[in-house]
Amino acid sequence: MNEELNIGPHISRQFDAELDEIRSRVLKMGSLVETQLIKTLDALREDDGSGIKGVSKLDRKVNKLEVQIDEECTQILAMRQPAAGDLRMIIATSKSVRDLERAGDEAERVANMVKQALTNEMQRKLYKGLLGLGELVAQLLKSTLDAYARMDIPGALQNMRLDQDIDEEYSRLVIRQVELMKKNPDNVADSLDVLWAARSMERIGDHCINICENIIYLVSGDDVRHAKFKDIEEQYAGGGY
């Protein structure tokens, strides 16, 4: 991150090491959530639920990392009294790990639903409709972690654009399921399950966008939460952050 912000190391190398440690833990946590989602999508794509078994175990690791990273952030606040970019890094990271943990919970929820659906032919077919949305969300999660690793505002903005595609795909999926429910009222319960799973995936996308907002805050000091995407895009159109 230091290179991206064009700032040299701290006089205290130990402080640099502590911050690096936190950053690498966040990326590790993110990669576990990513694996949760990918395992679920693979299972759905290949009609094979064997890989899903490990998802809950991964979620427990994600939860542990959240607690560990939060503790390390608290220690840095108490011991180092960080300011400016360092302070923003700790605040943004502490918020981002909460989003990652929630994304992990959503991924676990989808995994459990998919695991159940794979045992039933009808449900399996319906759940296949989630693949397009799931792949977009997995792509967003991956590029969000990339943007965090590089402290990259253009990357964060690109992710916000991708989230709009996800929202559109989610809306299309809802319409499709409603049509299916109208055509075949016997499958209402199954379609509702699919909608719940789709909702969880869409929520993972929202958590990614929260992390992207944290990245923008970390790099620029600007709080862009609740701002319209168009305004955020215009604000950073010329760089200069």
Binding site: N6, I7, H10, I11, P82, A83, A84, G85, S220
Partner: peptide, 20 residues
Amino acid sequence: KVFTNPEHQLTEEYITGRIG
């Protein structure tokens, strides 16, 4: 502002303990 988001890089470097 100085302690959360300083404008000048030298200020940032000083208050974050990069120059002393």
